[in-house]
Design a protein around this nucleic acid. Structure first.
Length: 650
RNA sequence: GCUGCUGUAGCUCAGAGGUAGAGCACUCCCUUGGUAAGGGAGAGGUCGAGAGUUCAAUUCUCUCCAGCAGCACCA
């Protein structure tokens, strides 16, 4: 029999018969490895222990100690075990697909009745039974026609469709445990008993469209989480509980930042405390943009449909636009207006006033633009997804040659701002030309190259999303993560060769001829609403001093101290701090508790001793320790800390 | 928009076919207390909206509205 050479991670090589499986390789090394092995990596690919190796290769055998492979396999096997459990309980349920996702897996089922929470418990119990059976997992490759016939005969139309979608050169692979069978590309564990029976949990049921297509049937998706050990599972569940505590909707209520109500779904009612945060952030952004060479403008909220038709938005987004009409009785002309869903067409109007020279470029035009979009009910989510929002929007009118420098300057600005706001980490997605697009390939080449070069000057770990660019140009998206790991798009940078054309923007070049400028759409926060939601979650409500709505509370311990409490409060305010006096007839314990729950960063307690010594006793949020210092010193320390990051000298 | 769940006092929640309850918060009184809840009293609700069934609906049914989880969408 022909031999092949397998190279192990330590660099050593051994000869095996062609077609040897990793299971056999493991067995040749030791009895215990044979038992403990879960999978292999062969030439870089995650490999099932049963798959034969046909040529010389590098090989690494995995056990449960290898986190990445173990979690992948455990979760993947659990998806199958869950599908099997469901079909054992309800044989008429149709199975579809069940991939591994972050922290776990899901599986989509077609079943007439909804799954209930009680059903989940029953399924979990059945899954543990299946795991206890320790059925060996076996696999082989089927003829395509046979697989189709099999699933047709078994009344599994979704599987038939999946097989038809597998490219012709790929094998149709089947997996079994026991008598239960599923189409799967693998790899899997050796037997179901390798799955830790106490380290998974079924979480929720929710609807999900077959193949993610809203025109197709809605299936029922069951989500599960799984880990290698019960402790890891417990830690994950604890993390979820902690995350729920920092949900911005909950904290927004507790800290009296904002509210929503039925009469204006998806529109924020900002309360004094929340609006203070908002303005602190807006003031900061305004200073940063000014320093970066932007000029601020303001454009109308209500604009005639003609402009939206010209920009192309009417065709594409009519459904999501709020339309206003004047009461017919009083209207002397019938105009249909729309609440602006975005600022760019208005910005082009400002650009178009007068004649622009190439010397004016790049021209950076910023607006804290209030926009309205009719988002689907199901899309609304606290401050993160609203119908009325304000973008930190700006458009840079420039030449093609200026794109790269503007992009680099933008990423630099964005990184600095994210850092100031506490986000050292953010993800970048780079979306390139889609199939349907405007503009020549040369221009796209240039724009994509410029964007890519600009990102690479900052970092090299970005996600490439080919074909996902806007129809008018490539784009970069900048994403932050909320308390439970959901990603939200915040910043964006988009090159646009289309809108200047549609809205006839031009400038006079050095050659004396008219040229089209390129328009760069860009935002850093994205929307103030969403960004503040993320800030709240990220800080668990404990905002840094410069952003905190109330920065300090001066609390009396005895009423004889009231006058000095007011004096101290005045001193803090004179130093620019947002300070309140609390001279209520309550004990200091009560006041400390209440202000701590309200996330006030600094509490200055004043009793008889402080009055006599002209000091305050300072307690910082989250600390048990107090510090008695001179009033002047406390004011200076807090005022310094409350300086916004861009105004700090040190 | 789709699937499922939910909607009772400012907040968190209990409750039942015979028009409602707790804790906290709120108001007043007592208390002047040294760093996460001092004591007492009081006030507060068209039980999300509309329709239907019933002698009787906040409770059962339907429709609508809003919220939650996920999917789809996100210029």
């Amino acid at each position: 029999m022909a031999q092949i050479s397998l190279t192990f991670p330590d660099g050593s090589s051994r000869a095996f018969d062609r077609g040897v499986t990793p299971a056999e390789v493991a067995a040749s090394i030791s009895k215990s490895l044979e038992k403990k092995a879960i999978s292999a990596t062969v030439n870089g690919a995650h490999w099932d222990l049963q798959w034969p190796i046909e040529a010389d290769a590098t090989i690494a055998l995995h056990t449960m100690a290898d986190d990445a492979q173990a979690l992948e396999l455990v979760r993947h096997d659990l998806a199958h075990i869950m599908a099997r459990a469901v079909q054992e309980i309800w044989p008429d349920v149709k199975v579809t697909i069940g991939p591994v996702i972050q922290n776990g897996w899901y599986y989509d089922f077609d079943r007439a009745e909804p799954f209930t929470p009680e059903d989940l418990g029953q399924i979990e119990t059945k899954m543990r039974e299946i795991i206890a059976r320790r059925d060996p997992v076996t696999t082989d490759v089927w003829e395509r026609a046979r697989a189709v016939r099999y699933y047709e005969a078994n009344g599994e139309p979704y599987k038939v469709e999946l097989i038809e979608g597998i490219p012709g050169d790929e094998p149709i692979r089947m997996y079994w445990h026991g008598h239960w069978q599923d189409l799967c590309r693998g790899p899997h564990l050796q037997h179901t008993g390798q799955v830790p029976a106490d380290a998974f949990k079924l979480m929720t049921v929710a609807g999900a469209y077959w193949r993610g297509d809203s025109s197709r049937p809605m299936l029922q998706r069951i989500y599960g989480v799984a880990f290698k050990s019960r402790q890891d599972l417990k830690a994950h569940l604890t993390m979820l509980e902690e995350a729920a505590k920092r949900d911005h909707r909950k904290l927004g209520r507790e800290m009296a930042l904002f509210h929503f109500q039925e009469e204006a779904p998806g529109m924020v009612f900002w309360h004094p405390a929340g609006w203070t945060v908002y303005r602190a952030l807006e003031d900061y952004m305004r200073r940063r943009l000014t320093a970066a060479g932007y000029r601020e403008i303001r454009t109308p909220q209500v604009v005639d449909r003609k402009l939206w038709e010209a920009s192309g938005h009417w065709d594409k987004y009519r459904e999501n636009m709020y339309i206003t009409e004047i009461d017919e009785e009083h209207a002397n002309e019938k105009r249909v207006n729309a609440l602006k869903p975005m600022n760019c067409p208005c910005h082009v109007q400002v650009f178009n006033q007068g004649i622009k020279s190439y010397r004016d470029l790049p021209l950076r035009m910023a607006e804290f633009g209030s926009c309205h979009r009719y988002e689907a009910h199901g899309a609304l989510h606290g401050l993160m997804r609203v119908r009325g929002f304000t973008q930190d929007d700006a458009h840079i009118f420039c030449t093609e040659d200026q794109i790269e420098a503007e992009c680099a300057a933008f990423i630099d600005l964005l990184s600095g701002i994210y850092r100031d706001l506490g986000f050292a980490k953010f993800d970048i997605k780079f979306s390139t030309r889609p199939e349907v697009r405007v503009g020549s390939d040369e221009v796209w080449d240039k724009a994509e190259a410029a964007l890519e070069k600009a990102i690479l000057s900052v970092r090299n770990d970005f996600e490439l999303d080919p074909g996902e660019g806007a129809f008018y140009g490539p784009k970069l998206d900048f994403k932050l993560t909320d308390a439970i790991g959901r990603e939200w798009q915040c910043g964006t940078f988009q090159a646009d060769f289309n809108l200047p054309e549609r809205l006839d923007a031009s400038y006079v070049g050095a050659d004396g001829d008219r040229h089209r400028p390129v328009m760069l759409h860009r935002a850093i926060l994205g929307s103030f609403e969403r960004f503040i939601g993320i800030l709240i979650e990220s800080y668990a409500g404990k905002l840094p001093l410069w952003l905190a709505p109330t920065q300090a509370v001066v609390a009396s311990i005895v009423s004889d101290a009231d006058d000095y409490v007011r004096e101290a409060t005045t001193a803090l305010r004179a130093a620019g701090l947002r300070a309140e006096a609390d001279v209520r007839n309550e004990k200091i314990n009560y006041k400390v508790r209440e202000h701590s729950l309200a996330k006030v960063p600094a509490i200055l307690a004043i009793g008889q001793r402080e009055v006599e010594d002209r000091t305050v006793t300072l307690r910082r949020l989250g600390e048990k320790q107090t510090r008695t210092v001179a009033l002047d010193e406390a004011v200076a320390v807090l005022a310094d800390e409350a300086t916004p990051p861009d105004l700090r000298t040190a």
